[in-house]
Design a protein around this nucleic acid. Structure first.
Lengths: 110, 110
DNA sequence: ATTTATTATTGCAATATTACGATATAGTAT
DNA sequence: ATACTATATCGTAATATTGCAATAATAAAT
């Protein structure tokens, strides 16, 4: 096997899992934080910020793009990357909802 | 290779990535939602709720436990699982902070 | 046209993940 | 003691991920 049985789960479950999975690597978290630090939108220089080779960074960027966590637009010679607020807001809302429900119920027994 | 170069990233980046990665599978999202639905703490019956074989579910539960997203205590014959609020709160706070910063800066250019 | 700079793609090796049958373990009930 | 129930572990196959050298693609600069 090795492939996830995505068809058995709801669209929302799959969507959240895809976003979470894309954020499930420290390099990709570092990319997000860097994009945030330099203020939303930058062209180039992501590779130099990470301790990884250029093809590896390119691959991580691709995965963040596939999960719609970042957007990239061609800006002359280089590419302008920025965070897609909608996707991260969706994730934030989802976990806000989860933690809110946990607070209400709070049946701590373990 | 295949192994992540975790040593090059900060503790927080690694921690968030580990939690996100553990949530990066629809079955594990479904487990969280089920634990929430039946109210925090249940003994048994997780296997019957998922369209996966018992060893597979057990493996997913182990990964959620490793990431400290759920806790399990032995309750006689079965095991009592519940969500660890602290960990999900940590993830929630992290993304709340990210999205808050995005809102403040909001340099939408892509 | 050639060089330079930036990013993507290809190909490959190492490792990790997903899934499950078979089996083990541990507690309950008879 | 034996049977039953619930969960974990082992072993293994299929697939995915991570990482990078080599190379390609694209645009800007000379």
């Amino acid at each position: 096997m090795g492939a996830s049985k995505t068809e058995h789960f709801s669209d929302e479950q799959n969507t959240i899992a895809i976003i979470a999975k894309a954020l499930g690597h420290p390099a990709r978290i570092a990319i997000i934080e860097h994009l945030l630090k330099v203020n939303a939108c930058i062209c180039g220089d992501i590779v130099n910020e990470l301790p990884l080779a250029q093809p590896t960074v390119s691959q991580h960027l691709k995965e963040l793009k596939n999960a719609k966590i970042i957007k990239g637009t061609i800006e002359g010679n280089s590419i302008c990357y920025c965070i897609d607020e909608n996707t991260l807001n969706q994730l934030k809302s989802y976990f806000e909802n989860i933690t809110k429900q946990l607070e209400i119920k709070s049946t701590q027994c373990c």
